[in-house]
């Protein structure tokens, strides 16, 4: 599903260049539940942004669903994002003036689905994350955990191939963290590839494979106990 070869990325800082990713090789197959671990500055968010087509890499190859990602223009990137990828962010990134239901329906709007159908599908996914009753609430009337579940419903609504979650539990307490991770696991159990970025050991433990990053390089890549159990 995701294949990365010798990926490099650097950011200009004034006249200097900050080399963030220094040659990453990573292969994630369909249906995997992977977490990327690392301290801040290790390059994990940069990796997710590149995987999510929110940013461009400098060197190396990136294949998404078998397609080489190279010199994408914004329009093509937008279409690919809409088709293959669902995003869950640490800060939820819901549009504040839209209700939960409308936020979930937004990706479908850009996919060209008509209004009636889009609201039906969105409601279905809100139901799935247990927030049907909150469909007409604005984000600021929801708790952090609820907001994140709305965001997850939004990520899922286009039936993407991969869900990318950037510190999805970073702003949540431990109870809600568990419920969000449970939800991600359920999604993965249904066959969706889930790609989580975190710096919390407990969160990573709940995935099936942990990739550890340090200073822009992969230092370890191993299956967790649940991952091994599945593999066996």
């Amino acid at each position: 599903m995701i294949r990365i070869e010798k990926l490099h990325k650097s950011y200009p800082i004034g006249k200097e260049k900050l080399h963030v990713l220094k040659g990453i090789d990573l292969h994630i197959k369909e249906g995997e539940f992977v977490s990327i671990m690392g301290s801040s500055g290790s390059g994990k968010s940069t990796l997710l942004n590149i995987v999510g087509l929110l940013d461009e890499h400098d060197e190396g190859n990136y294949y998404l669903n078998g397609e080489l990602i190279k010199d994408l223009n914004e329009k093509k990137a937008a279409i690919l994002r809409n088709k293959f990828l669902g995003f869950v962010f640490q800060s939820f990134n819901l549009i504040s003036y839209k209700t939960a239901l409308e936020n979930v329906a937004l990706p479908l709007y850009y996919k060209g689905v008509n209004r009636k159908e889009r609201l039906e599908i969105a409601m279905e996914y809100l139901d799935k994350v247990g927030l049907k009753a909150w469909a007409n609430h604005l984000p600021n009337e929801l708790s952090g955990g609820q907001k994140q579940r709305v965001a997850i419903a939004r990520a899922l609504v286009t039936k993407p191939k991969v869900v990318l979650a950037d510190e999805p539990t970073g702003a949540l307490d431990s109870t809600t963290t568990d419920s969000v991770m449970d939800l991600l696991r359920d999604i993965n159990n249904e066959g969706m590839t889930v790609f989580v970025i975190t710096h919390e050991e407990e969160v990573a433990e709940q995935t099936k494979r942990i990739v550890r990053l340090k200073d822009g390089l992969i230092i370890s890549d191993e299956l967790t106990s649940t991952g091994k159990a599945k593999a066996v």
Binding site: A78, I79, N82, F87, N93, I95, Y110, R154
Partner: peptide, 9 residues
Amino acid sequence: IRKAVGATP
């Protein structure tokens, strides 16, 4: 956000 969920420029 709109771009992340698939809005073209």
